[in-house]
Design a protein around this nucleic acid. Structure first.
Lengths: 154, 154
DNA sequence: TTGGTTGCAAACACTTTGCAGCTGA
DNA sequence: TCAGCTGCAAAGTGTTTGCAACCAA
C-alpha cells in the first residue's frame, strides 16, 4: 500500500461527521452494511431535517432493496451514536434532525409549509430575550419557530 | 319567562369563548348535540394544547358513548369556526391548540419535554426581531420554540 | 463460523371515510 | 319532517416487531 500522509494533528480535519461512521459502528461491534452505507449517502445529501418517509424513499431509489424497517432501525442506531436526533414535524411524521454543523434556527410557516433558516444574528436576539427574561438557555441548534410568513399573513 | 338584564353593550362580557359555541353553530345551520356539548366541556378544562387522543379519552370518560370519529369531526368543525387550530405535537400525534386568549408563545424543551409559556413581553422581542430582520410576520398565537431548558442544558 | 442484520409480513396506533339509522330544530 | 349527526366498521397511514435467512467480520 502507498504511504499516506500523516494525519494533521490540528485543524478542521473532519469535513463531514459521516466520514467515520463505519469506524464508529465497527468499534461498537456493529456492522457496516450496504443498506447503512446507502442511508449515510442519503443523509449526506440533506441538511437540517428530513422525514423518515423521505429517507426511505430516497434509499429505495438508490438501492432498491432497502426496506422501511431497515431504515428505521438504522436511524435508531444513528441516533444512539448521536448523529441524528428524531422528533416530529408539523405534518406529524417522524422527522430526523441531522446533526447541526452550525448554530442556526428554523422558521416554519404554518400557512404554506415553507421553511427558512433564521440568520445567526436574528437567532441571537431571540436567544438573548429568552435567556435574560426567562432564564431559559436555548439550544440554538434546535430552535424552531412556527408562524405565518409574510406571504400567508394578511 | 323572567325578564333578563339587558346585555351590556360594552365591557369584557364573554368570559369564555366557548360560551356562545352553541349559538354560533346554530347560526350556521349546524346542531348542538350532546357529543359536541361534551367536547366543549372537555376543551374548557384545557389550556394551550391537547392531543386528539386525550380529548377522545376524556370525552369517552364523561359520556361513554362518544366515539373517535365523532370527536375528530367535531374538532374539524371547531377549527372551521376558528376555535381551535390543529397541528402536530412533539410526540407526533394530532394536537389541538385551544384558541389563544392572549398573545403568547410556547417554549418546548426537547430534553425533558416540558412546556412553558413565553411571556408577552418576551414574545414581542422575538416577533420584532423576525419582523424587522426577516420581514417575517409571525402569528404570535402560534409561536413555538423548541430548545433546551436551563435544567437540561449544561 | 457466528452474531449482528435484513426483508417480509403481520401487528399497531392513530386518523379518515362510507353508510344506515338517529335526532335536533 | 328532514338535513345534519352519530356509531360502527372498514380502509388508510406511517411505524414497529417477530422471525428465518443472510452475510460482514
Amino acid at each position: 500500500m502507498p504511504h499516506e500522509q500523516i494525519e494533521a494533528s490540528a485543524g478542521p480535519a473532519a469535513a463531514s461527521p459521516w466520514d467515520d461512521v463505519a469506524v464508529r459502528l465497527r468499534a461498537g461491534g456493529l456492522r457496516w452494511t450496504p443498506q447503512r452505507r446507502t442511508l449515510i449517502e442519503v443523509l449526506r445529501e440533506h441538511e437540517g431535517h428530513v422525514t423518515a418517509s423521505e429517507l426511505i424513499a430516497r434509499c429505495k431509489e438508490l438501492d432498491g432493496t432497502t426496506t422501511p424497517s431497515t431504515v428505521y432501525r438504522a436511524l435508531d442506531l444513528l441516533e444512539e451514536l448521536g448523529l441524528v436526533k428524531h422528533g416530529h414535524g408539523h405534518d406529524g411524521r417522524e422527522e430526523y434532525h441531522i446533526l447541526p454543523q452550525q448554530v442556526h434556527g428554523h422558521l416554519y410557516c404554518v400557512g404554506c409549509g415553507s421553511t427558512w433558516e433564521i440568520r445567526p444574528e436574528t437567532a441571537a436576539v431571540i436567544v438573548d430575550a429568552l435567556a435574560s427574561q426567562l432564564g431559559f438557555a436555548v439550544d440554538l441548534s434546535h430552535v424552531t419557530i412556527s408562524g405565518l410568513c409574510a406571504g400567508c399573513h394578511d
